[in-house]
Amino acid sequence: MVAVVRGAGCSRGYSGRRYMRKLTYFVATTLDGFIAESGGADPTQSGHFLMEGDHMGHLFQHYGDTLPFMAREALGIAGELTRFDTVLEGRKSYESGVVQGIPDAYTHLKHYVFSSTLTEAAPTVELVAGDALAKVKEIKQQEGLGIFLVGGGGLAATLLPEIDEIFVKQHPTVMGQGIPMFNGGFSPDRFELADLTRFDSGVLFLKYQRRG
């Protein structure tokens, strides 16, 4: 059973390219707020993130834009993008795909990778070496659908002032230690719960919007 609870601040949703662009931090976490194991190991391989259950069908149906192209092809997801057309990624998150032989997991999106050390990437990826906040402000002014940050925690901490929404896929597991959602120094900020979807798998989808 899927239970949905909507907060008072819930958005009325997306309306194509007329919708004001927002940056959404779209991230999976454990109960104790970790997005990856220490050293960057994939939590799906150790069972920290549940890859089976009713939450997966909901993710495929409503958030197919955020899936890597391999998953979209396997699921037969095609057609126009509905929520997001741009993805942001940090170096470590990007390199975790490269070592698996996937130089660009998001060929269906405009893909930016932020790094001061990377000198090359897939032709479909745009490297950003300069001021990350300034670049994101520029991207948000361009025409398009939503923008989502897929990882990692260090880039999320840097971009916090420009994050409009935080979409948390919270798994009912505890990691104990690892890479936190926001990994680095930043000023505390306030968000409010706008949407909560509860699944029989024990996973929660929580959407928070920047307060005010």
Rank of each mutant, 00 (worst) to 15 (best):
P188T: 01
A157S: 14
V98T: 06
G57N: 10
I147D: 00
H108L: 07
E126K: 14
V113M: 03
L67R: 12
F49M: 08
D200Y: 09
A132R: 01
A156H: 01
G202N: 02
D65T: 09
V150S: 15
G47M: 13
T86D: 08
D54K: 11
L159Y: 00
F182S: 01
T44Y: 03
L206W: 12
R17P: 03
Y208L: 10
F148D: 00
G178I: 05
F60I: 10
A156P: 06
V125I: 11
S187E: 14
Y106N: 02
V27E: 07
L127R: 02
G64M: 05
T30D: 01
Y14N: 11
G146S: 05
G202E: 03
A74R: 15
E138F: 09
M181G: 13
Y106A: 01
F69G: 03
G153L: 05
E37N: 07
A105S: 15
E192S: 12
D195G: 05
G178H: 06
M20A: 13
Q141W: 06
F84G: 00
L31Y: 05
A3E: 13
Q141D: 14
Y112W: 12
L88M: 09
K92H: 11
D200T: 12
D42P: 08
S38G: 01
A8E: 15
A8G: 13
R17T: 14
G47H: 12
G146W: 15
K22L: 09
P103E: 11
V125F: 09
Y94S: 10
I77Y: 00
S38E: 14
Y19L: 05
A3T: 13
P161G: 08
K22Q: 12
T173W: 00
G33C: 09
V174M: 11
T173R: 10
L23M: 08
F60Q: 06
G101R: 03
E73Y: 06
L196V: 15
M51Q: 15
E80M: 11
K169G: 11
I166G: 07
L109Y: 09
A129W: 02
Q209N: 11
E80Q: 15
P161V: 07
Y19V: 05
T119D: 06
S116H: 07
P161S: 08
G185L: 06
Y208E: 03
V128G: 02
A41S: 13
